[in-house]
Nucleic acid binder design. Sequence first.
DNA 1: TGCGTTGATATGTATATACATAAAAGCAAC
DNA 2: GTTGCTTTTATGTATATACATATCAACGCA
Lengths: 250, 250
Amino acid sequence: MADMETLREEEAGGEPVSLYQRILGDIRDRILSGEWPPGYRIPFEHELTTQYGCSRMTVNKALSQLANAGLIERRRRSGSFVRRPQLQSAILEIHDIKAEVDALGLPYRYELATRLQRKATRADLVRLDVPLPSTVLELSCRHFAGDRPFCLEDRLISLAAVPEVADESFAEMAPGPWLVSRVPWNAAEHAIRAVGADAATAAALGIAAGTACLVIERRTWSADQPVTHVRLTYAGDSHALVARFTPSQG
Amino acid sequence: MADMETLREEEAGGEPVSLYQRILGDIRDRILSGEWPPGYRIPFEHELTTQYGCSRMTVNKALSQLANAGLIERRRRSGSFVRRPQLQSAILEIHDIKAEVDALGLPYRYELATRLQRKATRADLVRLDVPLPSTVLELSCRHFAGDRPFCLEDRLISLAAVPEVADESFAEMAPGPWLVSRVPWNAAEHAIRAVGADAATAAALGIAAGTACLVIERRTWSADQPVTHVRLTYAGDSHALVARFTPSQG
DNA sequence: TGCGTTGATATGTATATACATAAAAGCAAC
DNA sequence: GTTGCTTTTATGTATATACATATCAACGCA
């Protein structure tokens, strides 16, 4: 249930932590330090209650949260065991493009290139998993950092999922923030790859053809209905994705 | 504490879920569907107890987990409120390279190119944050899918953090799995970028110079001590990182 | 009007208790 | 020895209760 960010609390700060948090932190630290390696059987709830002088509910709360976090595995009758780190999983934070440009200290500008409402074609199915007789909005736009193109955005939006886009010109507002503020999404999928810029991309980004570009594709669903597919293309050297780490996760 | 993966349970399966899980799921669904938008004040614990006919501890457990998951925010005296999705964050799963190749259905092969134990230079500091008079192991190796190079690995390992590497040749075993199984890490940082292959990289990967490559750099710490820095270079079109999504996270 | 005190309220944590359940261990009959 | 039962055990869930604490609102006093 938990990722480690939320499992972490301030120990050094000396602020009062509750008892179950102390128990949780103690065990977590022993696991992360390697003192209790994968497979290690951590003390029974019963033992921890005597060790900490508290009730079973309290240690149960701590252990349950560790189990939710994927750090330990609980087995009835057998006890609780340190889990092997399953997969190295990193948390990628997808920032707003404007925020990225702001972070560079450069003025941000957005520009709509094309806006086309049309019937979905067979080719769109790969990008957006809509039933075939359906209407989509295709957008192409650019994000600028200063006066240099920073990112190219090609987007497909399902009109079935978001009918209101028909009334939105997107001349001033980028579709990303517009959608985020309007459509509650509950699933998404990202693919990240490196591709050489083709002629059109190179021209739009103001770079030489063949330059390495970082391409991020994202598909988003809301209530099992496909909402949008977006392809963001960054000139290779201008951008890096940074991912924070999450220690161990089911 | 929770990420949504673990918050999710099988509703359709019809398997018996506990009461607090039902409460948790009900509220989560209303938030993710948008029925309860950001800022919405969800019913007080007291109201939920009467609504579900259960004790406060039970609804408290559900609400606490939602708060840990970052879906709601709890304020004393005021109630609990739906949080605005903070950042689009995706969970990137960093697979073992052998597993990636296996997934392609191709035979995997590993090959060590160079192995050099030496004093750390100023240039290494950027990669591995070690104190200057210290020793590092520099490795360069290739991972093959079939008979084509799949991935180039350049690695720096701190001997202070992992003295045992001095005795390991890495002729047979890749350093990645070796380290994972041996060193408990508790922090890492990833940077993902697209770069054009330079002459050496192109030769090593068997591609044309300038071809777009996906470069993943990872720095790993164990107990606040830098352990390793690795740069993985994939020929652009041969590889894409896929990231699963996590709905909303503090 | 302005300010401090007081009380009400919702959440935060902890306890003792109870019963359910899964799983392993022990035991007995075949 | 294997099968099938019972017992033990540790966890899973839920309850009623208690007190702490942060905070908002209302009140009363200067």
